[in-house]
């Protein structure tokens, strides 16, 4: 038990440092401010519409799209910056295993994502307070779960891109492309037949989002998000470990 703890405690140290580092730089505050500003506008003009059934759908749609540039911006520096400045040398020569190093970084970025999403809880709370009849709580829960899973997946892809380069801008672009690939691969699927078609549809993201939008939290979708994220993390670990051998 003690050995397990001492193996993973450094990951917590890294996550804490990562989170505090976002807030010690203007970038963290600016990302959160812009996200809240835009979602706030959407909430005010598209959700709080009198004489229409109360639904958070517009907010979740907008937030999902906003994650497209925001998540890569959060994740791009995670490892790339460490490689560029050389601080990674201090981490890789400390008693921190490579999985703990990568997961600590990942956890730090997820904590920042939470810090960005938590203030948006005022929107459903407002809606519950002002609208009559009160909105269904189910779709709101499903919406937030979806947003969180989407964020985690995007951040994991970003972590992977960041682990492969010491250039944060490049990591941002690559992450954006990886996400767009998952969003657009479905179009390709309609052109082909057989097993390839099945694989392409299995990788496609939009059908899963529309299921969540219907208010369904399906276990297979949750598993898909989490296993794809885990896969990206595993590759990030391989890239970091590979630096020792290069």
């Amino acid at each position: 038990m003690n050995a397990v703890l001492s193996h993973w405690l450094p990951a917590w140290a890294l996550a804490r440092r990562e989170l505090s580092s976002y807030f010690r730089q203007p970038a963290g505050w600016i990302i959160i401010a812009l996200f809240l500003l835009l979602t706030g506008v959407v909430f005010a003009f598209a959700v709080l519409v009198p004489a229409r059934p109360a639904s958070m759908r517009a907010f979740f749609d907008a937030s999902g799209w906003l994650l497209l540039p925001v998540a890569p911006a959060i994740s791009m520096r995670l490892l790339a910056e460490e490689f560029r400045t050389g601080t990674v040398e201090g981490l890789m020569t400390a008693p921190v295993s490579t999985p703990a190093l990568v997961l600590g970084k990942f956890l730090g970025s997820i904590l920042f994502l939470l810090a960005m999403l938590i203030p948006t809880l005022v929107y459903p709370i407002t809606l519950l307070a002002v609208s009559d009849p009160t909105p269904d709580i189910g779709p709101i829960l499903a919406g937030y779960s979806c947003l969180l899973l989407l964020g985690i997946l995007y951040l994991a892809l970003g972590l992977l891109a960041s682990s492969a380069t010491s250039n944060a801008t490049l990591a941002f672009i690559v992450t954006l492309f990886l996400i767009l690939a998952l969003l657009l691969v479905g179009t390709l699927g309609r052109q082909v037949e057989g097993t390839l078609r099945d694989i392409i549809f299995a990788m496609s993201l939009p059908p899963r989002l529309s299921d969540f939008a219907k208010g369904v939290i399906a276990t297979n979708h949750v598993a898909w998000f989490l296993s794809l994220s885990a896969l990206a993390c595993a590759f990030a670990m391989i890239f970091v470990q590979w630096r020792r051998w290069r």
Binding site: S20, S21, T85, G86, T87, E89, G90, T93
Partner: peptide
């Protein structure tokens, strides 16, 4: 204890 060349540190901390 190890001090790498050029002492990389986190500037914001």
């Amino acid at each position: 204890g190890y001090l790498p060349e050029s002492t990389p540190l986190y500037p914001e901390m």
